[in-house]
């Protein structure tokens, strides 16, 4: 465990908790893409199937449980409790265009052709594009609530910090994983224009609004 990975996990946890609290406190999921949250729930489910079979550490197991429960709770709040506030008119990104290619690619490019490994690879590929429905929703509505932009900033930072973690592990342990690395680069690149808007607008106290 190195500082980048720890900060990355922390940033990821903060993002997940910020989103859950935003929906719970404001009793509204306006501006949130339920489709992205479904994809994240699928990502955690397919990635953490080894939750009980492959014990790594208390930290690892407890974080996995927190991620899985929070992601399902978020999906439940969006499509269950607060579905009246769900923006289904704008949350229209076709997630099958993300699920099918990720599944096909997972069969073609993986480290080991075993069910757990293919599901892990699928979750890595899917996670790299899972934010697209959310970014699509923000671009369609042309703006995002400040709390939502903090959520996106924390979520984007997590994988950026993981890229630094992999750099660190490569030079210190000779460890590298091309599948996770290339997917992580794609995932982080997707946030670039958001990062620019966040730093140039939100940090100056303005609302995040996309140029019309």
């Amino acid at each position: 465990m190195n500082v980048f990975r720890f900060l990355g996990d922390l940033s990821h946890l903060v993002a997940i908790v910020i989103l859950l609290l935003k929906i719970w406190k404001t009793r509204s999921c306006s501006g949130i893409s339920g489709r992205s949250q479904i994809l994240f729930a699928i990502v955690f489910t397919t990635r953490y199937l080894d939750l009980f079979s492959n014990f790594i550490s208390v930290y690892n197991t407890s974080m996995k449980i927190v991620y899985i429960t929070c992601s399902y709770a978020t999906v439940y709040l969006i499509y269950g409790k607060f579905k009246a506030t769900y923006d289904f008119n704008h949350d229209t990104f076709r997630i099958e265009f993300l699920l099918v290619p990720s599944a096909i690619l997972a069969f073609l490019v993986n480290h080991d052709f075993s069910p757990l490994e293919i599901l892990w690879t699928f979750s890595i590929y899917l996670e790299s594009v899972a934010i697209l429905p959310q970014l699509f929703l923000v671009s369609k509505t042309g703006e995002a609530e400040t709390i939502t932009s903090h959520y996106l900033f924390a979520l984007g930072s997590y994988r950026l910090l993981y890229l630094l973690n992999w750099l660190w592990r490569y030079f210190s342990q000779g460890f590298y994983d091309l599948i996770a690395l290339l997917s992580g680069i794609l995932q982080t690149v997707l946030y670039c224009d958001f990062f620019y808007l966040y730093i140039s607008k939100v940090l100056k106290g303005k609302k995040l609004s996309l140029p019309a």
Partner: peptide, 10 residues
């Protein structure tokens, strides 16, 4: 290189 299929990261 460490066995890549033992994923110790989240």
């Amino acid at each position: 290189v460490i066995a890549r299929t033992r994923h110790d990261e989240l």
